[in-house]
Design a protein around this nucleic acid. Sequence first.
DNA 1: TATTGTTATACTCTATAACTATA
DNA 2: TATAGTTATAGAGTATAACAATA
Lengths: 163, 163
Amino acid sequence: MSNRRSPRLDLTPAGRMEEARLQKVLGYQLAQATIVTDAIFREQVGKPLNLRPVEYTVLTLIAENPGGSLVRLARALCVTPPNISTMVDRLEAKGLIARESSEEDRRAHVLHVTSKGADLVRKATQKIVAAESQALPLSAGEQAILAELLHKVALARSKVLGG
Amino acid sequence: MSNRRSPRLDLTPAGRMEEARLQKVLGYQLAQATIVTDAIFREQVGKPLNLRPVEYTVLTLIAENPGGSLVRLARALCVTPPNISTMVDRLEAKGLIARESSEEDRRAHVLHVTSKGADLVRKATQKIVAAESQALPLSAGEQAILAELLHKVALARSKVLGG
DNA sequence: TATTGTTATACTCTATAACTATA
DNA sequence: TATAGTTATAGAGTATAACAATA
């Protein structure tokens, strides 16, 4: 974890401003780290594959959970149903997913990816994972630890938001 | 790091969707963790102190860097100058910061917090830090490691974005 | 010419409200 | 009465373009 050759500086990653207090705020650090991963996503997937971050996530969740409903997606991503609705519209218009009426519950829809969508998800995930491990100054072990800790934070959601 | 009593499940924190592939994508995990820290911020600071996340960050950076300019803030936060400009307008209207013309460079403005702003920053940071360590299932050591790793990721910004 | 900062504007993201159709 | 999903609309958030003042 420690690296004697690059000591921790209390400066923002850009603009060279003192940020000692903010370094104690996890929310701030998440935002700063997200600037980097957003840039990687945009470069590797957003621009070349014409896919927005949330679209990629929705597409992946549908790919891994065929037959899921809109409401489950909304809950998983913590966004409102209207959002998911229009998002799914876009993905359907692009030919990446298909939406059918459920036979058990005729209110609900059943979602699954098309082969085109499955290909896109596979390629996108491959590119992001490769680009992240190449661009980020983390060892494989550090990446694993980071993933684990972030997952723990994410799991506090029910405690914080209820549900 | 490991916890035998709560084995890692490849399920989303809500909605119980399979997310094995996404767990390899750092950007996704950051987004999921941010859902939690955003909720904590809103509850502890956003609502009671009537402050938005970016406003809090800007206010803190000004408090720690008195005499700084708008452009430096924009660079630190990776947003465009017009954004910072209106944000600073709001903070000034709330009486939290003061903006003066620089004497060295008469184009530039010099920013510093008012005593009201300094009080607010102190109280806000206190509340967030306390709430985060209370609400998140991380030991002090884990929090430190997480902070360190996120900082490393954030430092990759120049590599990814240039500059 | 380049930089600081502003205004005006537009686009994206996400939320709420109101609705339908089913259960 | 509650739930799945949609449409319409409104509010943040952030970006680009065009500009004024200064370096």
